[in-house]
Design a binder for these strands. Structure first.
Lengths: 336, 336
DNA sequence: TACAATAACGGAAACGTTTACAATAACGCT
DNA sequence: AGCGTTATTGTAAACGTTTCCGTTATTGTA
């Protein structure tokens, strides 16, 4: 409890505390002999540098803020794990905040984090129509988004190629013989979902098949939403042979609704997701989906942020990672 | 980028910066008039208090450290979410670290966090035989564990009553007519798993049925481990009518193995888990299990930590929350 | 009117570091 | 011997707050 400081060490070492500081910081302007002596003393006295004091003078904290809408969603938590682990290898700790899918809360925690003097912020934004209101915030501290961003407000972000991903998915379904494909999406106020929808729509056009879109009034792609949408859909007459969901969680909810409605997957209807969260690999779920390269995204995000911290005045950066198809058992080929 | 400080505000307000400080901190020794004037000015100038500087003089950071073995496990991530949200309502931010189930890494990040001057640490420990090696660490900063702790080294912790939970589970299976119950557990070097096993064992004895225990050589209760254990089990002759798993993730893995081995749940064998992670409610899984009250545990943990921060010299505290039975569809009653 | 009490504010120290600058010592060179 | 270098160390300022203490102005009281 009685924390030992630089001064304490200096006192018993009989040197000035600048010397002690130099010993620990690995400064060259100190003799090897005294360095060893002091380092040994530090160990003995149980000295740990106070990084708050250090941050005070160095003007940076070596802390990154992370804002996520939720941690219950495996997509977020898996990403968070990668983020934290990689950031730590680069000497940064993560201060994590839930925005709970709340737009105001998101802004609030953002400000909170800049007050905390984080060196930068990584943010998985809740769905926004526009990023404009965030600009006042992001000008305060280097920020990178994980997810697409509005074109009219270029910012730094890394993302999977959502448009391409849905194209891949749609084409896959088409190649299986499906001509009537229903798209299940959340409300499109998020750029991510807009791009996914566009990917589907444009591919339909290219393939000359008619698009069918069902969009939830909710903005979140949760299991509950998928369950509700699926329930309603299956309770009415329907003729689509495949359902393409904007997110795995949605698909898992749909699967649940299908199960309860007695429609079998993939026998009666094929089902695809997007994200490739770990649970979609469960044999009971076994969802064919589009992969997001989580770890790559995490690494790219912190690298990008690091870059912007070093070089805040640089051009806005973006990195769009390629998605890939993960074939499992939730889709079947249509006999003619 | 040119951050505005107290002094800047003071300068344009024409007061000393002590006055500005008083205005924001809500000190009584300032006139309402100047306070309003200064607060308005702060808004205009976009001043945000530097909490690093504040921490420097106040000697606390209002930051809690959180150490978890993993975030991929829904048990951890759900808990983490609750922890963060509740801590924030109490004015604390969370610095999250993965120990990656690595004993040495756990100690390393612990030290890292105390260097960061966190006011306290909440820790979900990787399984330990003994907490003794941690004592050197926990003496440095108030710590509360989530999970049972060694009896010989009393520490602060909150936990679900693991013993009682397994007792409930075993009795439930018994009440369904099962007399031959297999216990699937991870290697027992964690107190949690020890207590769960004991709960099973003692209940077997009470009920006069013979216990059957299969323990993994791995310490983690992951889906992969459950899958491997289940695969091996189902590939040999077996006669147990029910399998009781030490954790939901384990059970989900077993379920996968059962599926592939052609054994149907609950028709051929009943299956129970422990934890009640959100995914166990999926209709495709629908696992009967024992509930851990996540939110209660989260709230209790930060309250307990807050308490110890205020009062470091107090008695060690512990809180054991009652588990409850969650009946779903993975167990069936045995006809005689 | 004089004086004590109080309200409002300013000055300055302190928190534990880093670092620019100054100081000293040791050394090599001419 | 004197001087410039260099290596090593010390001194002190700075980072942005909070807070103790002192000062001034204002008010109330006798």
């Amino acid at each position: 409890m009685p924390t030992v400081t630089l001064k304490d060490v200096a006192k018993v070492a009989g040197v000035s505390y600048a010397t002690v500081s130099r010993a620990i910081s690995g400064s060259p302007e100190i003799s090897e002999e005294t360095r060893r002596r002091i380092l040994k003393l530090c160990k003995e006295m149980g000295y740990t540098p106070n990084s708050v004091a250090r941050s005070m003078v160095k003007r940076h904290t070596e802390i990154m803020g992370l804002i996520v809408p939720s941690l219950n969603n495996p997509f977020m938590s898996e990403l968070t794990a990668h983020l934290e682990i990689y950031a730590r290898t680069r000497g940064y700790n993560l201060m994590v905040c839930n925005s709970s899918y709340d737009y105001d809360l998101e802004k609030e925690v953002f400000s909170l984090l800049v007050g905390r003097q984080v060196d930068g912020i990584i943010m998985i934004p809740v769905g926004h129509e526009s990023y404009e209101p965030l600009n006042a915030l992001t000008s305060q501290v280097p920020t990178v988004f994980i997810s697409e961003n509005m074109k009219d407000y270029p910012e730094n972000y890394v993302s999977v190629d959502n448009h391409r991903g849905m194209q891949i998915a749609t084409e896959y379904l088409y190649s299986l013989g499906h001509r009537s494909i229903l798209y299940f999406g959340a409300r499109s106020d998020s750029k991510t979902h807009q791009l996914r929808l566009d990917g589907y729509l444009s591919t339909c056009e290219k393939l000359s098949i008619e698009p069918h879109v069902l969009r939830s009034s909710y903005t979140r792609s949760s299991r509950e939403v998928g369950y509700a949408m699926g329930g309603e859909y299956f309770s009415r007459p329907h003729q689509e042979t495949a359902i393409l969901c904007a997110a795995d969680m949605l698909a898992i909810g749909v699967m649940q609704a299908a199960f309860e409605a007695g429609v079998r997957i993939p026998k009666d209807v094929s089902l695809m997701g997007f994200d490739n969260i770990s649970f979609s690999a469960l044999p009971q779920i076994d969802l064919t989906t589009v992969n997001q390269p989580f770890q790559q995204m995490a690494i790219a995000s912190v690298d990008m942020l690091l870059d912007r911290i070093k070089n805040p005045r640089s051009e806005h950066a973006k990195l769009i990672l390629p998605p890939s198809l993960i074939v499992r058992k939730s889709c079947r080929a249509l006999g003619k």
